[in-house]
Every structure is written in C-alpha cells, then in structure tokens.
Amino acid sequence: MRRATSGVLRFWIVPVTLVLWELLTRVTESPYFPPPSRIATQFYDMWLSGPASQLLLTESALDTFGPSLGRLLAGWTIAGVLGIALGVALGRIRGLAEYTDPVLQFLRALPPPLLVPIFFVLFKIGTPTQLAVIVFGVIWPVLVNTTDGVRAVDKGFLETARVFQFSRYDILRRVILPSAMPKIFAGLRLSLSLALILMVVSELVGSNSGIGYSLLYAQQSYDYTGVWAHIVLLGVLGLLFNALFLVAEGRVLSWHANARRNV
C-alpha cells in the first residue's frame, strides 16, 4: 500500500502535465496542437477498439504494426546474432581487432539513415532495404560490447577451464559467453531502441507499409491528431520494448545481479 502511494506520488507530474496540456490546447485551439484527450480518443479508435480475441487491436493496428514490428524484430535478431559472432571473433582472435579497427570505426560512423537511399537503389523498395538498414545500424552496440565483454573475462575463470581441460567449445559456450553476457545484454538493449528509430526512418523514406508509412500518410492528409497519435504510439512502443527487455534480462542474468549484490 505504501509502495503504491509512493508510486503515485512519484508520478504526480504526469497527470498534472496532461491536465495543463489539455487546458492550454483547448484555450489556444491551434490545429497543430490537439488536446491530449482527443489524441487518446483517436489512438483508441484507430488501434485499440478491436475485439478481445485480437487483444483489442483493430484490423488497422494489425495491418500497421505487423510489418513494422516484424522487420524491427527480424533486423534486431539478425544484428544480434551477427554482432555477437563477430564480437567474439574480434575479442578472442589475437590481432584481428587491430587489422579491422579502422574499417569498423569508419562503418560505425556512417549515419544509418543515409544508407536508406543507397540500399534503396540497390535492393529497390521493401523489406530487404529496411532489414539491411536496421541490421547495419544496430549491430554496433552489440559488436562493441561483445568484444569488450569477451576480452574482460576474468583470468581466474579461464585458468580453471584450462586446468580442467575444457574443450574449446565448452570454454566459449560455458565460460566466455556467460561471463560476457551482462555486457552483451547492455548492447542488445541499446540496439533495440536504435532498431525502433531506424524502423521509423526506413519506413518514412522508402516503404508502403508500417507505422512510419502510416504516420506519413496521416501527415499528408493533414490529420494532425493522427500524427500526434503515431508519435505517442512510438513512445509507448519504446517504453514497452525497454520494459520487456529488462524483464528478460532480469531472468537470464539473475546470477549477475545477485553475485554483485553479495560481493
């Protein structure tokens, strides 16, 4: 009960801001700044008034969210797998990092949105372009963190593995990877939020489906409230992904949090 109260107290600013925003927008009546209540209504009508069997999602929500989230998750997964594999190689194969460092630094510095038109010319419109942009843009945090993580494996852990003659596979699978996992997860989490951004960018520039496309459509039909609803939607998705990821991380890395608490 006390926790609930303190939670409410902690978030008092949210309702206060909403009420002020509501009053202000009602007074000014600017078409560009609709009141939050109207945004919420439109949000509900567009996406959340569906049947319970579809988790209240409307047909339009399924049609819009489906392709976007599919691409986002596919791109993130591919980037995650590639990033971990390359990161392990860079961290464990002596010298490899030195030979590849300038190229990787350069590739990392390229703004991923600029690759949309390039991939667009190469692959034409559609999912391959978007996947390529997401993978290219979000692989770096995973790659860098994995490299750091596998390099920083405690020497004691590795010596134990050598004394007991673990196979190379066991050393990688049961010592190096678990030990680097906290860092890898930090990279994956950052990548997930980047993937959301790049999903929107790729859909704004070259797509005919998804949330970004739908946002562009609302803008071009001068549906300002609709534009706001999309922005709110993307914010909610960002929060949701982060929260889900933290839950998953808490499960997988419970040993890490606990081990640190007990030291």
Binding site: R10, F11, W12, I13, V14, T17, Y32, P113, S193, L196, I197, V200, V201, L204, G212, L215, L216, A218, Q219, Y224, V227, W228, H230, I231, L234, G235, L237, G238, L239, N242
Partner: peptide, 26 residues
C-alpha cells in the same frame, strides 16, 4: 529531478525522427 524524472522517461523513447512529419508542419 525526482518530479521531472518520469517526464524524461516518457519523452526519451520517442524517436526524434517521428517528430519530423509534425515539425515540418510547424
């Protein structure tokens, strides 16, 4: 900071690029 923190947490995940279509109009 305690008061504003929730607002920051709500605003930060909004991808800046999503604002482009709105800001163009403004």
């Amino acid at each position: 900071e305690m008061a504003v923190r929730p607002l920051i947490e709500f605003l930060r995940p909004i991808p800046s690029v999503a604002l482009i279509p709105l800001v163009i109009l403004l």
